[in-house]
Design a protein around this nucleic acid. Structure first.
Length: 313
DNA sequence: AGCCAGGCATCAG
DNA sequence: CTGATGCATGGC
């Protein structure tokens, strides 16, 4: 009923730090449940639910990912789909060493050292990522995570695991389109409840097709997303980056809006739009990753867990 | 009590 | 175009 797998160097291009990646507040999905070094999540593979416990091993520069799978019918094909699921989720094929090398002479390289192995994530369920991105607006990481977990248990299909544990899948657009405002607000969604409803409805009636956005250019996709209620530039970029893997997207939130002018322009006054344009022109296809390092560095630096001794500037 | 949190919509100049 | 304000909610 349980099988052990590992993803090792050779399948991972360069360093990988699971903790940094899992704790960087990306809106691909909510935080996995954590117990010490191990992170747990449930999903379907070949139509069967399986519970994944993942934990790191090896030194940071030569890291591998250990996986314990609990479930039934764990044939070779299922295990292979679990492996590729994780490789895609943590974007383990991204050439992190090349990214570090390209920008090693910039101030941002301080963040490379501090958070070496931090990787972008890409959602396995774009709809879930879109709802996460919507809920993250004007809220803390901890808060939107609670809301998403509540939406999951309140509306998501029950999953029975062979060992008797139960989990909930993330609900479909059809389910959320029919959700009651009261129940959504019960999950502390606040005024975002309306946004969740209308976005879900637009997906159900065909006005919004997330798979088609995948093939559109960055600009086209972003403009189309911003037509939707409750989706502005930042939420659109979060979804494009963490939901669809558009690595040119660089969400400009309050942290990035503070940090970029300070680090790159001597504290000059800039609009959010200017900051976004700057990151895209400077980092191109790496803009999303550069944004993640700046964001995580800034957020950790001002946290009590990470004293602000080392300065980026 | 007041301000902030991975913003957005709206309205006034 | 820029700037101000309300919006739900919890944490500090």
């Amino acid at each position: 009923m349980g099988v052990d797998l590992s993803i090792t160097q050779g399948e991972i291009r360069g360093p990988f730090n699971l903790h940094h990646t899992m704790q960087s507040g990306q809106t691909s999905e909510p935080y996995w449940r954590r117990q010490n070094e191990t992170y747990r999540e449930v999903d379907f593979f070949n139509g069967q639910p399986a519970l994944l416990d993942v934990y790191p091993s090896g030194d940071p520069d030569n890291a591998s990912l250990q996986i314990h799978v609990t479930g039934e019918h764990l044939d070779e094909e299922t295990l292979e789909s679990i492996r590729s699921y994780l490789v895609n989720l943590f974007r383990l094929c991204d050439d992190l060493p090349l990214f570090y090398k390209k920008f090693r002479n910039e101030k941002i390289s301080q963040a490379f050292k501090e958070f070496c192995g931090l990787r972008l994530m890409k959602a396995s369920n774009p709809f879930e990522s879109l709802i996460c991105s919507v809920c993250s607006q004007h809220s803390s990481v901890e808060q939107w995570n609670k809301t998403i977990r509540c939406i999951q248990t309140s509306f998501g299909q029950l999953i029975d695991l062979p060992d008797g544990q139960t989990f909930h899948a993330f609900p479909s657009p059809e389910t959320l389109a029919k959700a009651s405002t009261a129940k959504l607000e019960g999950c502390q969604a606040g005024y975002r409840a309306q946004y969740i409803l209308s976005v879900s409805k637009k997906i159900v009636n065909g006005d919004l097709n997330l798979d088609e956005l995948r093939n559109a250019s960055y600009e086209t996709a972003k403009n189309e997303l911003m037509e939707l209620p409750g989706i502005g530039p930042k939420v659109a970029d979060c979804f494009l980056l963490y939901g669809l893997g558009q690595t040119r997207a660089a969400p400009v939130d309050i942290w990035i809006h503070r940090i970029v002018p300070k680090v790159y322009f001597g504290g000059a006054k800039m609009s959010k739009e200017e900051v976004g344009r700057f990151l895209r022109s400077r980092y191109g296809e790496w803009a999303g990753l550069a944004q993640l390092y700046l964001y995580h560095y800034g957020r950790m630096r001002s946290s009590k867990l990470f004293p602000p001794e080392k300065k980026l500037v």
